[in-house]
Lab assay of single mutants.
Amino acid sequence: MAAAAAAGAGPEMVRGQVFDVGPRYTNLSYIGEGAYGMVCSAYDNVNKVRVAIKKISPFEHQTYCQRTLREIKILLRFRHENIIGINDIIRAPTIEQMKDVYIVQDLMETDLYKLLKTQHLSNDHICYFLYQILRGLKYIHSANVLHRDLKPSNLLLNTTCDLKICDFGLARVADPDHDHTGFLTEYVATRWYRAPEIMLNSKGYTKSIDIWSVGCILAEMLSNRPIFPGKHYLDQLNHILGILGSPSQEDLNCIINLKARNYLLSLPHKNKVPWNRLFPNADSKALDLLDKMLTFNPHKRIEVEQALAHPYLEQYYDPSDEPIAEAPFKFDMELDDLPKEKLKELIFEETARFQPGYRS
């Protein structure tokens, strides 16, 4: 834990890192770190609560700039109880001085990944967590956004079992017609939660990839272990087919990539493993919904509104309290091709509203 900075004593240090967030945020305490930044909790002297502050230093890398800009653009436009918001952003007053960006968010005690390492969940908890994931996802999908990296560590939890989806750095506007060349190379989302079509096709992607990830998360809540822990690309596919069985001819016809289709045709026939054999203690309604989410063919996979209306979630289902976005989200430009200098300018502009004396 960093010592509390005395008023006016300059930035606090946390594990050798400068955290320049005073005077409003003090009493910093280390939480963890990701690929390009550290997260601390801090005391907000204005709202009198502890908050989470993520320090991001992305400006050396085009990919990190892209992810940072995506996350900020999306989260500043989203407003939903099951999606983490941005409360404040701290950065230098000029673009030349801006080396880091500090993002202030609600402090959540833990995440689903940490929880599943230590606790076996009751059916009631599984049901409530799944409902909140789908409630947040309904809003995301209504904005025409794909999260693309749903996994237990991106689901934040607090002691009252509130759940918030975080990390929109890989999110995209849904565009089933656009052929994202190089899709697989830039697709760094965790393999275990990846839909089979991501490994088999490169053309376009749809909201059904997020539903697949939610199915993987439900299976993990039922058993405290990942359902498809593939060691590499082909191993991942083999794990999936080992449980779902061989795809039907109709399902194979959806695979545009001939090499991928021929690979699947070359494999020995596998039978589907019954879900109640894998999860003998699970609620039968939970397994019915799991089956509809972990469907090989993305066109037959359940959609988020149908999933919310499934009998497993009937005690929570309330369409009048499951809000959607006001308007579909649009990125003005494809960020993939922009140089990091341009992305830095866009991050600077996007964060201006939090600067003292800002006038829109």
Rank of each mutant, 00 (worst) to 15 (best):
L222F: 10
K340N: 14
I95A: 03
L155V: 06
N201R: 07
D336K: 11
L184A: 03
D149S: 02
A5F: 00
F168E: 02
I86T: 00
Y128A: 04
S223N: 07
S284F: 12
I103N: 14
A143Y: 00
C40K: 05
A327Y: 03
G10P: 02
I84E: 11
K114S: 07
P247M: 04
L252F: 03
A286K: 00
H299Q: 12
G37Y: 10
K344T: 06
L170K: 11
K55Y: 11
Y233Q: 01
D106F: 06
M98D: 03
N271M: 08
R91H: 15
L252H: 08
A3T: 13
E345P: 04
P328L: 12
A92L: 03
A327V: 10
P93K: 07
G204H: 11
P58I: 13
I255H: 01
I133W: 06
L237H: 07
L234K: 05
A309P: 10
H310L: 15
L121M: 14
Q119Y: 06
I56C: 12
C161P: 03
I31W: 13
I31C: 06
R148G: 07
V273Y: 11
P328M: 09
A219E: 14
Q97N: 01
L130I: 06
V188N: 06
T160A: 06
M333G: 08
G136M: 03
G34F: 03
F354Q: 08
V104F: 13
E322S: 06
G8E: 11
K73N: 14
G215S: 06
I227A: 01
Y263N: 15
C161K: 01
Y263L: 12
G32N: 05
G245S: 12
E81R: 01
N262H: 11
C127Y: 12
I103T: 01
L137H: 09
S266L: 08
V214Y: 07
R353L: 11
R67F: 08
A3V: 13
F279R: 08
A7W: 02
D149W: 08
L252E: 09
R24Q: 07
P268A: 00
H269M: 07
L258M: 15
E197A: 12
L112K: 12
C127P: 05
V51L: 10
F329R: 04
M38V: 15
E81F: 05
P11L: 12
F129I: 15
R301L: 10
D321K: 00
K151C: 07
F168Q: 11
R79C: 09
T185H: 06
L241R: 00
L107A: 04
L156V: 04
P11R: 12
K54A: 02
N158Q: 09
A9V: 11
Y131I: 10
Y128E: 00
G136K: 05
S122G: 12
Q236I: 04
A7M: 02
E60P: 13
A327L: 12
Y187S: 13
G230P: 02
G245F: 10
G242E: 03
C40G: 12
L343K: 06
S208A: 13
T94E: 08
Q249E: 01
Y312D: 01
K164C: 01
P280H: 14
A9Q: 06
A171E: 10
R50D: 14
H299K: 06
E197Y: 08
A4Q: 09
R91V: 13
H239M: 11
S208W: 03
G136W: 14
R50T: 12
C161M: 05
T94W: 09
V173G: 11
R194W: 08
N262W: 04
P356F: 02
N262G: 02
Y187I: 03
A52V: 12
E71R: 09
D318L: 04
I243K: 06
H180F: 04
I89F: 14
Y317T: 06
R353D: 01
T206M: 07
A42W: 00
N271Y: 14
R15L: 11
C254K: 04
G357P: 02
H269C: 09
E96M: 05
S360H: 12
K55G: 15
D20A: 08
S248G: 02
K259P: 10
Y131K: 09
S122P: 05
L163W: 05
H80I: 02
K285L: 13
E12L: 10
A352M: 12
Q249K: 15
P226L: 11
L150W: 09
A195F: 05
L258K: 05
G357Y: 11
R353K: 13
H120I: 11
T206D: 05
L218E: 04
L69C: 05
D111P: 01
T110N: 13
T206L: 09
A42P: 05
G10E: 13
G34E: 13
I240R: 00
P58V: 13
T159G: 04
H125C: 08
I198M: 03
D283W: 02
C161H: 04
W212H: 10
L146Q: 14
F19P: 03
D175L: 10
D288H: 00
E220M: 04
Q66L: 15
I324F: 14
P58M: 15
F78R: 09
Y193K: 10
D100G: 12
S248Y: 14
L69F: 03
H239Q: 15
K340C: 02
A171L: 10
D336P: 03
P339T: 13
G204I: 06
V49M: 15
G85M: 12
L343D: 06
D210E: 13
D235S: 06
F329A: 05
F183C: 12
P274L: 11
K207F: 06
I89M: 11
Y25H: 07
V39T: 06
G8N: 08
L76S: 11
I209M: 00
Q17F: 01
N257G: 05
N45V: 11
Y43T: 13
V214E: 15
V104A: 13
A325W: 03
L107F: 10
K270N: 15
G85D: 13
T181Y: 07
N154T: 14
H120E: 10
A327W: 07
I324S: 12
I72L: 12
I198P: 03
K138L: 08
Y317I: 06
L234V: 11
I255N: 14
C166W: 00
L308M: 13
L116R: 09
E220S: 03
Y233M: 12
L308N: 01
D162T: 06
I302N: 15
R301M: 01
A92G: 02
D44H: 15
H120K: 13
L278P: 05
Q97M: 10
N253F: 09
M13Q: 07
N224Q: 10
Y30T: 02
L267E: 02
A9N: 01
E109T: 02
P152N: 08
E12I: 06
D149C: 04
L222V: 06
F279S: 10
K340M: 14
C166L: 09
K203G: 08
N154A: 06
K73T: 06
C65H: 13
L107Y: 11
T190K: 05
I243S: 13
V173Y: 01
T118M: 11
P11M: 10
G34L: 08
T63D: 14
A4N: 02
A35I: 03
L170A: 03
H120R: 12
L146E: 00
D175H: 10
I211L: 05
W192T: 10
T118D: 05
Y128S: 11
A42R: 04
G242R: 04
M98E: 03
W192H: 12
L258V: 09
V214H: 12
L76A: 07
K117Q: 13
L112E: 09
